[in-house]
């Protein structure tokens, strides 16, 4: 009987200890190359602004609400990746040249902290003001909202048009009489 009790005790202790050992693996972040050669021609830049409306009023046991208005600006650059341009994309015959450009893409997105301004805050009597961690979390949401809408801003079409204009001018300066850019 004593032996069985000992075994039960040991098994139970081991179970509890093992539960304590259960650990979630931290998310793996892929390594990032610090310095990389690229070849992107930015041909269009768009500056957008947004008024961010944030509210914290849904937690039932917190008395009072908190609201905040933030104005921010973001700068988006788009263009074409010249690294994707292959020899067969350039056809030259005498004084004329035909170039097939790669599709346009967003190259950079910048939302500098100096372009973020808290315009208005409304804090309930029983609430703490917004901390910087919370303000930054709000701005992260605003950033992803702007990024989501970036494609609908027509910037890619403008980048393509800009790339055509620049490449045409460049090859005319390089001595070609007829330049066709697709």
């Amino acid at each position: 009987m004593v032996q069985i009790s000992k075994k039960i005790y040991l098994a139970a202790t081991a179970f509890v200890l093992l539960c304590g050992c259960a650990k979630k693996e931290p998310p793996q972040t892929p390594p990032l190359l610090q310095l990389r050669q690229i070849g992107q021609l930015a041909t269009a830049e768009m500056e957008v602004s947004k008024v961010v409306r944030a509210r914290d009023e849904d937690t039932w046991y917190k008395l009072g609400e908190r609201r905040m208005l933030i104005t921010c600006r973001a700068r988006i650059k788009a263009g074409v990746n010249l690294e994707q341009l292959k020899e067969m994309d350039v056809v030259q015959q005498g004084g004329s040249i035909l170039i097939k450009l790669p599709p346009p893409q967003i190259i950079s997105f910048s939302m500098p902290p100096e372009a973020i301004r808290v315009s208005y805050t409304d804090i309930g009597h029983f609430r703490d003001p917004f901390s910087q961690t919370e303000t930054n979390a709000i701005m992260k949401q605003a950033e992803s909202q702007i990024r989501r809408h970036a494609d609908s801003l027509d910037i890619l079409a403008r980048a393509k048009a800009g790339a055509i204009t620049f490449v045409t001018r460049f090859f005319v300066q390089a001595g070609f009489e007829e330049v066709i850019v697709e």
């Binding site: 610090q34 050669q37 690229i38 070849g39 021609l41 768009m46 500056e47 947004k50």
Partner: peptide, 18 residues
């Protein structure tokens, strides 16, 4: 979103540094 400004560029970006 409010578009404030649109500008044509010709910037050849050749190095990306993180």
């Amino acid at each position: 979103l409010l578009v404030q400004n649109i500008r044509e560029l010709a910037q050849l970006m050749t190095i990306e540094y993180y």
